[in-house]
Simulated assay, not measured.
Amino acid sequence: MCNRNISELRIRSVETNNMSNWQITHTIDTLTMVNNKFDILKKINDLINDGVEKKNIFITDKSFLITTNYKTYFEKGNVLENTPSAITKVANIGRFITMEYNDEIIKINCLFSYYKKINSLLNKDLNCRLRGTYLLKSYNELFKGGIEKAFDCLARSAKQQVMDIYERFLSPDNKKMNKLLEKIDSEKTKGLNKNYLNFQKLADDSIKRFALSFNRFDRPILGIYIEKNHTFEIINSDQMYKNGEESESRIQLKNISKNSPVLLVLLVTGVMLGFISYLAYRDHKVNNADIEDNMLDMPQSTHEVIRNVLINETGEMVYADQYTTKELDAQVANLAEKNLNKLEVVTNRKKVNIEIRNNI
């Protein structure tokens, strides 16, 4: 968090509501989640303003894990290139849900779904996984020959791997092997027909599903599908890599005092600072010179503060650049409003008092 405008956020429980250990944990977890999501939303809005099509901006249907540091994912940057190792990771971070309908993503989801089904079969019968080189080969075939050829390529490779393994057995069970080969073909037919249609139906409602996933997951994974070379860039990799320890926009817990009243002290920067400063100005005590000097310029509505914070380069709540050509995307605005509502709940003045001390 170096070289950033950092302020101290002090949250003190009111006398009639001394916070329990659970409430302390819930408050800190919510602040972290809200902080990360606001940071993501600013990035998305900037990408849209920079010309990235919304059909190529995705969220996955899984949260990232706090038990994984994702070091092997992002040591070389946040773009997962088309290598056997990287494409395997891409296939396992979840199904892709785009902000708008994207036919290529439907096909990718379908292929990855078949790959994971094959892995399940191989793991159950042979305690192994399909080689990453085979997945990459079929993935490349998807854009050269289409989805049917990609499925054929993956099925052919999987069956070859199965036969190679059985050949090494002293007494191979050919009946069991043939049954496994049949299952691989059966899943291919199912994937090309029923599963593909299901993915198409889900994609028809992509706008709603994107919002539901973003609001549902505490630690969402978001990124950009780069059409030119069919790679994936994870835009919140800084939150995932080493559990966000090196993220410049992270919120840091500085101190907890459990004496009555409970006092939480956190360091806040970036977009989160803009929103928490607005709530401090609107509902709580103001002890911030920048806020006091600009009281007349304060946002007068939720929509105005969302627009200001997400458009300003530094995430300030006061509209700083009147000449900017940036706009606030409607989908982003709706997601930001939901996120702000969660922040309002844990900073409700009936339960806590909040104070901002700037330039710590």
Rank of each mutant, 00 (worst) to 15 (best):
I251R: 05
Y225H: 08
D185R: 10
Q200Y: 13
M19F: 15
I24S: 14
E327A: 00
N195L: 06
K116V: 03
Y281I: 15
T302L: 13
N236H: 07
N287A: 12
I276R: 03
R349L: 14
I105A: 14
A336G: 07
F169H: 10
D205Y: 12
S13P: 12
D125V: 12
N359I: 10
R282E: 12
N82W: 09
I44M: 01
F217V: 08
I66G: 06
T32L: 00
C2I: 15
E148K: 08
I235P: 01
I97W: 09
L41H: 07
A211N: 13
L340M: 08
E187H: 07
C128E: 13
K179I: 09
K228L: 03
R357F: 10
N69L: 03
E233M: 13
L130T: 06
K42Y: 04
L154W: 03
R129P: 09
L343I: 14
A330T: 06
F151H: 04
H230L: 00
F143V: 04
N35L: 01
N45R: 07
K208Q: 12
E182C: 07
Y114I: 04
E104V: 03
N215H: 14
K116H: 13
F38L: 04
Y225A: 02
F74N: 02
T60W: 11
N140L: 02
V52H: 03
F214N: 02
L135T: 11
L9V: 11
N35H: 06
V305T: 03
E327N: 10
K159Y: 04
E141W: 02
K326N: 00
Q161E: 05
K183I: 00
N174K: 08
A280C: 11
E316T: 11
L273N: 11
K285T: 11
N312C: 06
T324P: 03
I66D: 07
I291R: 06
L266C: 14
K149W: 08
K179C: 14
D29I: 14
Q252K: 07
T302A: 15
I165S: 07
E182L: 04
H230A: 02
N18K: 09
A333N: 09
N69P: 00
S20L: 06
C2A: 13
I59P: 01
S120W: 13
F74L: 05
I311C: 05
